[in-house]
Amino acid sequence: MARNRNRENRSPRTPWRLAAGLILTMLAMLLLNACSDNESSVFHTNSSSEEALDNVARVPWDYRIVESSVGDLIGSDMTILPDNELIPNDENYATGDKIWALQYMDAEMTTDTNQRNNVQLSAWSTIKTFKTQADAKKDMANLKVPVTTEIDLVGVYKTQYQDKTRNFAVLELPSGNRIKQPIDDDRYKSLEKKKKVSVKLEEIHDFADYDSAYAKFRGWAS
């Protein structure tokens, strides 16, 4: 009799335990699904970030030559006046010597999905000094190279504002970036059906990596 009572006391709990187990299993599956959804969302965000980063490039932008003089000598370095920029004294200059400094500027260029560019320019920095202006110009001529070539013409279009009409040509540079140039009525008619156009470019080469260059539009070749 006692054994029968014990069985009777235990038997009602069995269905409850089964139900609790099923509930816990379902909760675990829901949690796993939620984690899976979160991972998918995170990966999607990372992919977008990588695509955005791929559209940002740093390119050589310009060079210039400035007349300067040597300031303080600090060990094997020297300062250049008037900005007190510290650079190596490779030519063993003395304080007060007149020199010519070759300076460069680069640019961080962001290109959107419509091929439009947003450019952030750096400050000018000195990369080399010369005793004569002629030597400085000779060196810079290898970094800023004029080129006449054919490039893709994306198209031409007109805009109108307050009864005034303006014409534009959209060109694709060798770097893949697109630029917009204002044109007159005669050039609009001559370019209207063309796919290629002859232009003057200036190739700005990176002094540290000559094969890396950025082409700037400098005018029409015809």
Rank of each mutant, 00 (worst) to 15 (best):
residue 150 E to Q: 13
residue 142 N to D: 12
residue 113 T to W: 02
residue 177 N to H: 13
residue 59 V to S: 01
residue 193 K to Y: 06
residue 119 V to I: 13
residue 196 K to T: 08
residue 126 T to C: 08
residue 14 T to P: 00
residue 117 N to Q: 09
residue 172 E to W: 04
residue 186 D to I: 04
residue 5 R to T: 04
residue 44 H to W: 07
residue 51 E to D: 12
residue 84 N to I: 07
residue 183 I to T: 04
residue 33 N to Y: 11
residue 88 P to M: 00
residue 150 E to A: 10
residue 80 I to H: 05
residue 27 L to T: 13
residue 153 L to V: 05
residue 123 A to G: 11
residue 205 H to W: 01
residue 117 N to P: 00
residue 86 L to H: 07
residue 192 E to H: 14
residue 213 A to K: 15
residue 165 T to A: 04
residue 95 T to R: 11
residue 90 D to K: 11
residue 97 D to H: 12
residue 74 I to H: 07
residue 28 A to Q: 11
residue 67 E to L: 05
residue 145 V to T: 13
residue 91 E to C: 05
residue 20 A to G: 02
residue 92 N to D: 11
residue 216 K to G: 01
residue 19 A to Q: 14
residue 206 D to N: 14
residue 193 K to E: 10
residue 94 A to P: 00
residue 213 A to V: 09
residue 73 L to N: 12
residue 193 K to T: 08
residue 98 K to V: 09
residue 118 N to Y: 08
residue 141 A to D: 14
residue 42 V to F: 10
residue 175 S to R: 10
residue 169 A to G: 03
residue 206 D to T: 01
residue 107 A to N: 04
residue 188 Y to D: 01
residue 156 V to F: 04
residue 182 P to H: 05
residue 181 Q to I: 15
residue 136 A to K: 10
residue 99 I to L: 02
residue 84 N to L: 14
residue 13 R to F: 10
residue 62 D to A: 06
residue 195 K to V: 04
residue 156 V to A: 03
residue 38 N to Y: 08
residue 155 G to N: 08
residue 190 S to Y: 12
residue 142 N to P: 00
residue 101 A to M: 06
residue 96 G to H: 10
residue 49 S to H: 05
residue 161 Y to S: 12
residue 189 K to I: 03
residue 141 A to H: 12
residue 132 T to P: 00
residue 42 V to K: 15
residue 181 Q to T: 11
residue 40 S to H: 08
residue 194 K to D: 03
residue 105 M to K: 15
residue 80 I to P: 09
residue 108 E to P: 01
residue 44 H to E: 15
residue 2 A to D: 15
residue 75 G to H: 04
residue 124 W to G: 09
residue 109 M to L: 09
residue 171 L to D: 04
residue 142 N to E: 09
residue 170 V to R: 15
residue 85 E to I: 13
residue 57 A to S: 06
residue 178 R to C: 01
residue 11 S to H: 06
residue 164 K to L: 09
residue 29 M to A: 14
residue 64 R to M: 09
residue 83 D to S: 14
residue 173 L to W: 05
residue 9 N to Q: 08
residue 217 F to C: 01
residue 123 A to N: 14
residue 150 E to V: 10
residue 6 N to F: 12
residue 89 N to L: 03
residue 15 P to F: 03
residue 180 K to G: 02
residue 66 V to T: 14
residue 67 E to C: 06
residue 12 P to G: 05
residue 138 K to Q: 14
residue 87 I to V: 14
residue 188 Y to F: 12
residue 117 N to E: 02
residue 59 V to K: 03
residue 34 A to K: 14
residue 197 V to S: 02
residue 68 S to H: 07
residue 93 Y to P: 07
residue 3 R to F: 00
residue 218 R to L: 03
residue 212 S to D: 07
residue 185 D to S: 11
residue 163 D to C: 01
residue 136 A to N: 09
residue 34 A to M: 12
residue 139 D to K: 14
residue 124 W to T: 10
